[in-house]
Design a protein around this nucleic acid. Sequence first.
DNA 1: TCCTTTCTGTTGCCAAAGCAACGGAAGTAT
DNA 2: ATACTTCCGTTGCTTTGGCAACAGAAAGGA
Lengths: 219, 219
Amino acid sequence: MELPVAILQNTSLFRGMTEEEIRHLITCLASPVRRYGKGAFIWHAGEKVSHAGIVLSGIVDAVQYHDDGSMHLVARQTAGGVFGDLLMATDQPSPVSLQATEEAEVLFLPLDEILTDCGRRCPFHIRLRHNLLQEAADKYWQLHRRLQYLSEQSLRRRILLYLQDCRRDMGGSYFTIPYTREELAKFLGVNRSALSRELSRLQKEGIIDFHRNSFRILQ
Amino acid sequence: MELPVAILQNTSLFRGMTEEEIRHLITCLASPVRRYGKGAFIWHAGEKVSHAGIVLSGIVDAVQYHDDGSMHLVARQTAGGVFGDLLMATDQPSPVSLQATEEAEVLFLPLDEILTDCGRRCPFHIRLRHNLLQEAADKYWQLHRRLQYLSEQSLRRRILLYLQDCRRDMGGSYFTIPYTREELAKFLGVNRSALSRELSRLQKEGIIDFHRNSFRILQ
DNA sequence: TCCTTTCTGTTGCCAAAGCAACGGAAGTAT
DNA sequence: ATACTTCCGTTGCTTTGGCAACAGAAAGGA
């Protein structure tokens, strides 16, 4: 297939490279592209992973199946998203399964080839490693932030902390959040109706203003 | 000072290298060693970080100071521990401060030199990069696991999930946990007395057995 | 050994939040 | 326009777990 190099330029791993450099690199790495049907598993939980994947099209989810049969969405990647970067680097078996929630095309990058110098001394190889490390670090701090929300003891403080972070990230007094109420409740680890109730209280008390997904912090 | 290469051999970053290789590498990287007095700050929150640090002696804590003046311990490293690995890799300013809780000696490794080939083509340079990525990934999944505890809605399930993981990690029906009650409560994000109460209930119901830090899961 | 400090378990009270159920609003397909 | 589905706010009831205070056990120092 024809590689959509334009998509790759906007991925975290290939950021800052020219189309030509990316083509060169993918040749160096001998990266295969695979297609997965809707619902197909890319890796199962418990396996060891040796590649990272870049989603070229479709949706790839990291999911966790619990003992009681319930399943939990850990992360979702769409076109341009990277997965497996934090799995291939560890010796541990994967705690999550990777599944194509919609039919998906994936470009795989083998860890060994990323780390090793390919012998042609491509300078973007260094850049790739830097980008990979950055991707891992960014994901770490993202998780760290979520952990801070869950560490707040009161629902009110969870909400306010989250909204303040949102405002800071998006800059501007009005901002929108990327979740439905149900999703936000799950993200903050609380009951949906309790979340709605507390949001209403905050609005009554003049601390925030909101409608649906649009929010504003008043004080 | 004389570098304690023996300590370094047991660190995650230099794992799998001979003493000689480590010496060579440290020369390559031109890694400085610094000493910090008790309470001294290594980095302040908000700064950008360009080095990782290996603790040679003493204690280095990653802490977070809240608006209300309270402070929160995020991570602690003692001799052989690595910090800053996940800070230097991101463009974001550091969300935590690094502080020497006890007088400490630290070996610093500059990110640029880790990523770049030093020109002498040392093969352990590759190994170092691999170890660094692995360290980052391991820390990520550790955080992920903690997040799973906090995502459990009931105290009972948090406790059981944690204890089951402990048993799995330590292998054997009896196991000990590395926290006091107070610390465990904070780790699981619950009130200490509520934790004690639930532990007692679990014991009364014959689900677990414990005394102080020694635990056993009965069913 | 004795004193002091820290750690742990226990209990009563109460507020915060989970749960379930309902109804209206918004969005989508026919 | 209508029917249907999803999303959101509201409310009453109930439970969980936070909080405070106390007492006994363990640990550490003089």
